[in-house]
Computed example of a mutant assay.
Amino acid sequence: MSNSTASRGGGTQTVPPTREGSPTASGPAGRAPRPEWRQRLTRLDVRLSPYLYISPFFLLFLVVGMFPLAYTAWVSVHEWSLIGGKGEFVGLDNFREVLGNPYFTKQLVNTISIFLLSSVPQIVIAVVLAALLDNQLRGRTFWRMSILLPFVVSPVAIAIIFGSLYGDRYGLINELLGHVGIDPIGWHTERFASHVAVATMVNWRWTGYNALILLAAMQAVPRELYESAAIDGAGRVRQFASITLPMIRPTMIFVVITSTIGGLQIFAEPRLFDETNARNGGSDRQFGTITMLIYDFGWQLRDLGRASATAWLLFVVICVFGIANFLLIRRVGALGGER
């Protein structure tokens, strides 16, 4: 222990003695420094903790996602019966049989047609609805809840209702068309008309759901950006194109990708649309989809090898459309931000 003095302005100032354990002796906190191993453990904990928190999801995804995907690939290169089980290795023969099947090409075209007729209008209408609901409307909570109601209705109920609305002989749609001089349309027999009817069911069910997701993204955009744009003389359309679209681009990508995946995997709506030909998707498979062909191979013909090969071909198609839509929506958002 020692005493010291210092001069300041002609006076004398006494500095208090220091002791071991005091703040001036061992650091600001007055504690001895941590051991090296504890510091390393702390740094390791900071780095690994986030991965440990999200690991349950990835473990579950490996079990219910990646494992079935890999197992399906294994089944697709074997003769595999639903009853007899695994057979001999056949390589790519199952893929050749599926690609040579005339129903595969037809139902692939049907799937893409229904997907385009549903997803494109669905996204456009969802963006418009979200933009309208983002304003200060009266009873906006009621309107936001209302557009979500179709999503909670059972697909079976939707198919029954729309199957009756689009009835070929006594449907309400044909009845209304008859009042304006248009001949009845064969919604269940004509190929393109049936695609429009099935796409309408999909749009009615999913548009409100996507609109609420986009609305949440729009509400997260800072209001100051719109105020500044209004001061600069930008109108509503210009604000939407230059501020809203670029700011919600990540959410738009999410909505577009999920709509692409769901649209190309459509099964319930076309299968339930026509009760008399539910298995095939129409008398001539005019609105049958790839997922219905997978069901036909696997559960009707009991050929899991060809069903798995078809599923993998559909997986490739989804990846192609998903990447194309991802690049397209990024481009659209970038163009909106450059204006």
Results as ranks from 00 to 15, higher is better:
127 V>K: 04
245 L>G: 10
310 T>H: 02
82 L>V: 02
177 L>M: 11
62 L>C: 10
109 V>L: 14
334 A>K: 11
180 V>K: 04
86 K>L: 09
69 L>M: 12
186 G>M: 10
170 Y>I: 02
291 T>A: 11
242 S>P: 02
9 G>W: 14
4 S>I: 14
92 L>H: 01
162 F>Y: 10
156 V>A: 09
324 A>K: 02
222 P>M: 02
11 G>Y: 06
44 L>M: 13
130 A>Q: 05
282 G>M: 11
163 G>C: 10
217 A>W: 00
260 T>N: 08
185 I>A: 05
201 M>S: 05
284 D>W: 04
184 P>N: 14
136 Q>S: 12
60 L>R: 14
306 R>Q: 11
242 S>M: 07
174 N>E: 12
37 W>G: 12
173 I>N: 06
130 A>W: 05
254 F>M: 10
11 G>M: 13
85 G>M: 11
176 L>R: 04
202 V>T: 07
321 F>Y: 04
109 V>K: 15
91 G>H: 05
322 G>Q: 06
216 A>Y: 03
35 P>C: 08
192 F>C: 03
24 T>V: 14
251 T>D: 06
110 N>L: 11
237 V>L: 14
222 P>Y: 01
91 G>W: 02
67 F>T: 06
182 I>P: 01
247 M>Y: 11
143 W>S: 09
144 R>W: 00
57 F>L: 09
170 Y>A: 03
132 L>E: 02
135 N>W: 08
7 S>A: 14
288 G>A: 04
233 G>F: 05
240 F>L: 06
40 R>G: 15
241 A>E: 03
104 F>D: 12
337 G>P: 02
302 R>E: 00
60 L>Q: 11
53 Y>H: 09
